[in-house]
């Protein structure tokens, strides 16, 4: 029964070592699916759906091609793609720190981004919550994550309307 309850947390090589009859039983009891054909068909349906979405979007909203670059004509509003808007607004936001000196806006703009990325990279090390995984038992991690998402969305929105 140990197999039955905990096999999802097993390593690939351990799952492989489960006897075939035992695997059959797991599938019969609904605790697992056969990789072939169940899982493969599932994956194919997902892949086809993604292709369908991409083809539909490309047909209904074709990729835009703006006018050719002109290095002598600076446009009035330069805005990046949506995924760079939070980073873009961070640079604008840093300009509020001009009172600290002429160096501040540019340096802070990149330092804030650097700190955000570094925090994201070291999440597993910074998380002091032990082995607990349930979101309801990790209020601090959830609140900090929520604050991070909120700030990113806020900066993205402010970048959008800037």
């Amino acid at each position: 029964m140990a197999h039955a309850t905990k096999f999802t947390k097993k390593k690939e090589c351990e799952v492989k070592a489960i006897p075939y009859e035992e695997k059959k039983r797991l599938v019969r009891e609904g605790k697992a699916h056969w990789f072939f054909p169940h899982h493969i068909v599932e994956q194919m349906v997902i892949c086809m759906t993604i292709i369908m979405i991409m083809v539909t979007l490309s047909t209904l909203f074709p990729a835009h091609l703006g006018p050719m670059a002109d290095p002598f004509d600076t446009p009035a509003h330069i805005k990046p793609e949506w995924y760079f808007l939070p980073a873009f607004y961070t640079l604008k936001f840093a300009q509020y720190f001009e009172f600290l000196g002429a160096w501040a806006p540019k340096l802070l703009g990149i330092v804030i981004q650097g700190i955000a990325v570094t925090l994201l990279i070291f999440v597993p090390i910074l998380d002091m919550g032990g082995a607990e995984r349930r979101p309801s038992r990790r209020p601090i991690a959830m609140i900090l994550g929520g604050v991070g998402v909120f700030l990113t969305l806020l900066f993205g929105f402010l970048g959008h309307i800037a």
Partner: peptide, 28 residues
């Protein structure tokens, strides 16, 4: 995404890249 954005050599891509490559210049 950033490197691919410049390739069509459009006005928008060009100036977004100007801003994008200007940003790391602030690193000490």
């Amino acid at each position: 995404a950033f490197s691919g954005y410049l390739l069509p050599w459009t006005q928008l891509a060009y100036w977004a890249t100007v801003v994008g490559t200007e940003t790391p210049a602030a690193v000490p």
